[in-house]
Design a protein around this nucleic acid. Structure first.
Lengths: 356, 356
DNA sequence: TCATGTGGTGTGTGCGCACACACTGAGGGT
DNA sequence: ACCCTCAGTGTGTGCGCACACACCACATGA
């Protein structure tokens, strides 16, 4: 495991009977090499499977800058995107030996007009990470980048037929199916299952949420459950919503499931904690994303399980893949779905410890 | 995110009014520096928060060798330890820029006498990764290493009160509790739950397996189930075992759970596939570790769920932590439990894709 | 007296690579 | 004949660091 008898550029030059400069030109295909010599060098390269010394490479080319732009919703606050940002920061620290720097160009996830459809001009960005929340805008920007020959990586949801270097994201439909299965196991085939919508202001139901919902519904329908029986709009700041929830719970009497499609199951948990204990007793609340308030609510016993798709890993992989491509020409696998993690009170303690 | 204006040793030397050689001696505290100059340099170092250029460091000290010894069961075959080995190989490839090499010193996991209780003399190993399957032997070796001042990290199960640099491993008891919960949800409180022992030759039940069993039992007992109702010794190569299994299944009629405590649930799955369909219909088989044959059995529908504790990550982290400590003096967190992953047919496809 | 340490200090070299630069010789324009 | 261009080639330098080595002053012993 892990021997050491590295072949250097000088060795290759000697083997091919040329100078190191020529080898260098071939390796980085900068041209200005005769077809004959190119062939000779490439032959040697292939035969020995040359692996450059990355330390030396980094040292020698440390004047080069690699600014990367990330186009995504704000990383502020305790939400999903902040986790993506954590992963990016970690990737960046691993790349910190090289001159990679990341600029976050925020857009408003509730306003497609805030998404930049032209290449931002501030810097000469060498690569982009793009959150694909707005499909059309993403496609327009991608077209610009294609023309300019700048590589870009997608995160969040996939878009078919694009020239993205790679995609890292989640399969929202499948994570919905997982949630459906767990929910069915928790509450049984007879129980009511409620979809609670907890929104901010003008916020609309997103594509991801629709897919999750479809996944849950399909799973339930395929397994002898009569499906999601009720949808409620709830506002944690509105006492009327608490009333609505109590009302509903008293009607269903007995076991029930409740699911929130965005990452704000903790709000529903908070509301459940305020209704009469006998009403909430048989209720299993299920949500998405292992963000801090959700985990806390689970530890208080108010959330039954969470489904998470490793947002940190998504951010980490996206930046890492782009960096490795830019620095070392390493091509990543094109489509990468995150694992779908099931988090229950019994395993939550060992989940968030881990940075991946 | 990720700026760049690094301060070099020459800069520090200038600031402190000494030569680079002196700064170097202080940084690596090799002595031979006057108290006065030591103080001056350390002051500057502290004030600017010096971060060495790792690429240059790696390049300059590339003659130094860092042989690491891994003391663990054989990585051969499709089992648990091969996954640990995969993770180690990945960590090694990330460290390959530095002269880290790993030797696997195998022992027989069924024979404590095969565990080396003295420091192996072949090479001057700079660090050890030790699988703590044999507690006493591990403690003896650790004592030797303490005396010699060689760092070591533990994997597998923790041992309290030792001077290990770090521990990476699993909480077998807790993973048993998770299995217990899932099983109870799958089969319901009335169902029989069988523990099937599938052994090789003289193989004994291990400590980890005992803990898993305790976790399952405790969970069931605490949640109104009458507990593990039957233990069977099964040998997949013995037709009599198939008979025993059929017999058992015809007695329990209806839903039942079956759990295998080691990683060989696939053997039970294979046997189930051979009994009459009506007998196995309501049976949910539960096992541990997402090794290839188990995943295949799950995809065939013969395994209900698997619990995995990321063996690759264990191996990866252990080698990475040791390497980072040796190369960069970075101290890892001392105790690190792996996440407990729940794998079901609905999420298995996205699980093994991922290298972590 | 000279040789021989011995704490303390500075300088020089090279790790493997990227890249600027210098050089060559063939071809074309004048 | 001259100069110029330009594809193709080789050489030299420096990235930041670790470490061998040279050096100095002063002490110690013979």
């Amino acid at each position: 495991m892990g021997g050491k008898e590295e072949i250097r550029i000088v060795d290759i030059a000697a083997m091919a009977g040329v100078s190191t400069g020529t080898v260098d030109r071939v390796i980085h295909n900068r041209g200005r090499v005769s077809a004959e010599n190119t062939a000779k060098v490439e032959k040697v390269l292939r035969e020995i499977g040359y692996r450059p010394n990355l330390a030396a490479r980094a040292l020698a080319s440390n004047r080069k800058e690699f600014p990367i732009a990330v186009i995504a919703p704000s990383f502020d606050g305790p939400g999903y995107w902040s986790k993506v940002g954590e992963g990016m920061a970690r990737a960046l620290s691993e790349l910190s030996q090289y001159n990679v720097a990341v600029d976050l160009l925020e857009f408003d996830q509730y306003d497609s007009g805030s998404f930049p459809v032209r290449i931002p001009g501030e810097k000469q960005y060498r690569g982009f990470v793009i959150a694909t929340l707005f499909r059309h805008a993403t496609e327009m920007l991608s077209e610009q980048l294609d023309k300019a020959g700048i590589p870009y990586v997608y995160i969040d949801s996939p878009i078919e037929g694009q020239n993205d270097l790679a995609y890292f994201g989640v399969d929202a439909y499948q994570s919905g199916r997982v949630a459906g299965k767990m929910l069915l196991r928790e509450v049984g085939p007879e129980a009511e299952i409620l979809v609670a919508h907890i929104r901010f202001g003008r916020e609309d139901i997103s594509l991801q949420m629709k897919e999750r919902l479809a996944g849950i519904s399909d799973y339930l329908a395929e397994h002898g459950h009569r499906g999601l029986t009720c949808e409620l709009e709830l506002d944690p700041d509105d006492p009327g919503s608490l009333e609505t929830l109590s009302q509903y719970l008293s009607e269903v009497e007995g076991r029930a499931g409740a699911v929130v499609l965005n990452s704000r199951i903790y709000e529903l948990a908070g509301m459940l904690e305020q209704v009469a204990p006998e009403l909430r007793e048989g209720v299993v609340a299920a949500g998405f994303e292992a963000i801090a308030p959700n985990v806390e609510a689970m530890k208080r016993g108010s959330v039954g399980f969470l489904i998470s798709q490793r947002p940190e890993l998504q951010g980490y992989d996206a930046v890492k893949a782009l960096g490795d491509f830019l620095l070392h020409g390493k091509r990543p696998q094109k489509v990468n779905f995150m694992p779908i993690d099931i988090i229950i009170p019994e395993n939550v303690d060992y989940y968030n410890n881990y940075k991946l």
